[in-house]
């Protein structure tokens, strides 16, 4: 039994569903004791959800000014490593996870691997993408504690209920650091973040306008909890905001289902979605490179196929 910590993320009051796969990675089929670290003051509220996936210790972490200081959050994680004798600490490779884990690694002089798709705590190895998803690297982290962020949705959550207890943790950590979060500018939309989504439907350059994304949004609604993405060509043309871009210079996603509509299949786009479980392409050109790299293809006009797909999804 090894003690492994997981940084839990709660956003806008909601526990991110992608936390569960990280708990699954930490528990290694029940081999490890999982310490789920909750900083948002909601430890009691999320206890049952976290323990359903194998987190037996729910750590309610608190410190003055924690929410506004990423350096302080990193310091609290560092203190948790000591307090609970953690030999591994993992979290989501989200905007927050990427930032806090890198701060922690730098402050403590520990090695760290970002955006991993597999972790082996005993061997102290991780697997992660190198070269835009063209290669996978196996890296050994030579330290007492394995620090890694995990690509959201890369590890399938496994239901593994355990008894859980809440531990109060208020470490004496010094100073808030010199970086402060002064404001949150919420988009105000109820759109799901792409990296969180289990299903993504993406429109490329031929979508032609911002309004035309409506047909993808309708299809997303019919698909269930799906998010809508865009290619860089569509973002650069002003059809969609950068927050919707998938790929090398956009988001890295790993949903169960990725439907690409009017995408040529560029290396840079694939860098951001290659680890999706099933990839479907809709493209007018039978020779489009995307058909070489996906699982199912429909040769046809997205403006005809997508609405038809939406209809078919609505029928039971």
């Amino acid at each position: 039994m090894a003690n492994i910590g997981v940084l839990i993320e709660i956003e806008g009051g909601e526990l991110k569903a992608t936390n569960f796969g990280v708990i699954t990675a930490a528990s290694e089929q029940g081999k490890n004791d999982v310490y789920a670290i909750v900083m948002e003051g909601a430890a009691e509220a999320v206890k049952d959800q976290l323990s359903a996936y194998g987190a037996g210790k729910i750590v309610a972490a608190d410190a003055d000014g924690l929410a506004a200081s990423p350096d302080l959050q990193a310091a609290v994680l560092g203190a948790a490593i000591q307090e609970y004798s953690l030999v591994g600490l993992v979290g989501l490779a989200s905007a927050r996870g990427r930032d806090v884990f890198a701060r922690l690694a730098a402050a403590q002089g520990l090695p760290m691997a970002a955006d991993c798709v597999a972790v082996d705590f005993a061997a102290k190895t991780v697997q992660k993408s190198h070269f835009s998803g063209k290669t996978v690297a196996t890296i050994r982290l030579d330290a007492e504690v394995v620090l890694a962020t995990i690509r959201p949705n890369a590890i399938e959550p496994v239901n593994a209920p355990v008894e859980a207890e809440v531990l109060q943790f208020a470490p004496a950590v010094s100073g808030p650091g010199r970086v402060s979060i002064v404001e949150a500018k919420l988009s105000g939309s109820d759109k799901m973040d792409l990296t969180e989504a289990g299903v993504i439907i993406t429109g490329g350059r031929p979508i032609g306008s911002a309004e035309n994304y409506k047909i993808l949004e309708e299809c997303a609604a019919a698909l269930g909890s799906a998010a809508v993405g865009a290619s860089r060509a569509a973002v650069d043309a002003g059809f969609a905001p950068h927050s919707m871009q998938v790929g090398q210079t956009g988001k890295t996603v790993s949903p169960k289902l990725y439907i690409g509509c009017g995408l040529s299949g560029s290396v840079q786009h694939f860098a951001g979605m290659k680890t999706s479980k099933v990839i479907v392409a809709i493209n007018t050109d039978k020779d489009a490179p995307i058909f070489e790299k996906c699982d199912y293809g429909i040769i046809g006009d997205l403006f005809e196929v997508v609405p038809a797909l939406t209809e078919a999804l609505k029928e039971k």
Partner: peptide
Amino acid sequence: KSELLKLEPVPERSGAKILEGSTRDRV
């Protein structure tokens, strides 16, 4: 403190199964 043990190519998918028939049939 970190060591790259192995670098391996990620195999590409072997090509799509192309669905045939009318638009309705295919969707």
